[in-house]
Design a protein around this nucleic acid. Structure first.
Length: 273
DNA sequence: CCTTATGCCTGAATGC
DNA sequence: TGCATTCAGGCATAAG
């Protein structure tokens, strides 16, 4: 599922192809995948626009168009944005086809959770889904102290606090479990119980795991592909995610798998406290 | 403010 | 073999 490293990889691979291209036409094969802006229908706002730049905030892609419009895209679980040089038959779950000046961009999403929103560029930072996000993990504002501030009122399990995007933006189930393992912290710890040393370890682990994920071009555990349709390779580096019942790579004890707040969580009860 | 529960979806895996 | 159930999970929304 696209988390920060996957969305960043999509951003980079997409930018290689679509920058400065014009969106000549949009075909909505399932209109539920998109949202227009107030009275302006999605197709009308997008048609004829040029793609100027692509940013990322947490797990959101911000595709900036001319005339001060931005496409705010979230892949959720199975969303994909694929670029093709040539005209291409849509797949079964391709919901939106952007016809570009050269080639096509297909939004495909089996589970139909992902969305592409049309938003005026100056409204982006005010948008409800973006303005609640915690700091970017690689922003200088994201410090162990800041992380502590954002966890101090949270009595929920640490893992749950990392998954909601308010403490830090971009972690999902995979990288939350991996970060906690690297930090040696139990996902069941109360989020507000961390000592300064532990906050420092968690902060460092989050940055290290996310950077390694980006360097591996993401985790293709199931559906994830970049804009070129290529898999990432971080699934080969996973220490805990998807490894419940297997041996801990550090101590050899069996990894625990349990549900925490409805989310499957895997950790080593010997190495994580 | 906080926390928990539910709905959105399809396909793979599992149970009987 | 076939049918029903469970699971995967990010986020918006509603309710407590």
């Amino acid at each position: 599922m696209p988390e920060l490293p996957e969305v960043e990889t999509i951003r980079r691979t997409l930018a290689q192809h679509v920058l400065n291209q014009t969106i000549d036409d949009v075909i909505l094969r399932w209109p539920g995948a998109v949202r227009g802006w107030e009275a302006i229908p999605f197709e009308q706002g997008v048609r004829g626009r040029q793609i100027l730049s692509i940013d990322r905030r947490g797990k959101y892609l911000l595709i900036h168009l001319d005339e001060d419009w931005t496409l705010l895209a979230h892949m959720r679980m199975t969303g994909r944005l694929n670029y093709y040089e040539e005209e291409r038959e849509p797949e079964k779950h391709t919901h939106v086809v952007f016809k570009l000046s050269k080639g096509e961009l297909h939004f495909t999403d089996t589970r139909k959770f992902g969305r592409i929103l049309l938003v005026p560029t100056e409204q982006c930072t005010k948008h409800p889904s973006l303005c609640v996000l915690g700091p970017e993990p690689f922003d200088p504002n994201f410090t162990p102290k800041e992380l502590g501030q954002r966890l101090k009122n949270r009595s929920v399990a640490l893992k749950i606090a990392l998954l909601d995007q308010k403490a830090v933006a971009g972690l999902g189930n995979i990288y939350a479990d991996e970060s906690l393992f690297l930090a040696g912290l139990s996902p069941e710890r109360a989020a507000n119980s961390l000592k300064p040393k532990e906050l420092k370890a968690l902060h460092a682990a989050i940055q290290k795991v996310l950077q390694a994920g980006i360097d591996s071009r993401g985790t293709s555990f199931r559906d994830y592909r970049d804009a070129n349709g290529e898999k990432g390779s971080f699934q080969r580096s996973l220490q805990v995610y998807g490894r419940g019942g297997e041996k801990c790579t550090t101590c050899g004890k069996i990894l625990v798998r349990k549900r925490l707040g409805g989310r499957t969580t895997v950790f080593c009860s010997h190495c994580q406290h």
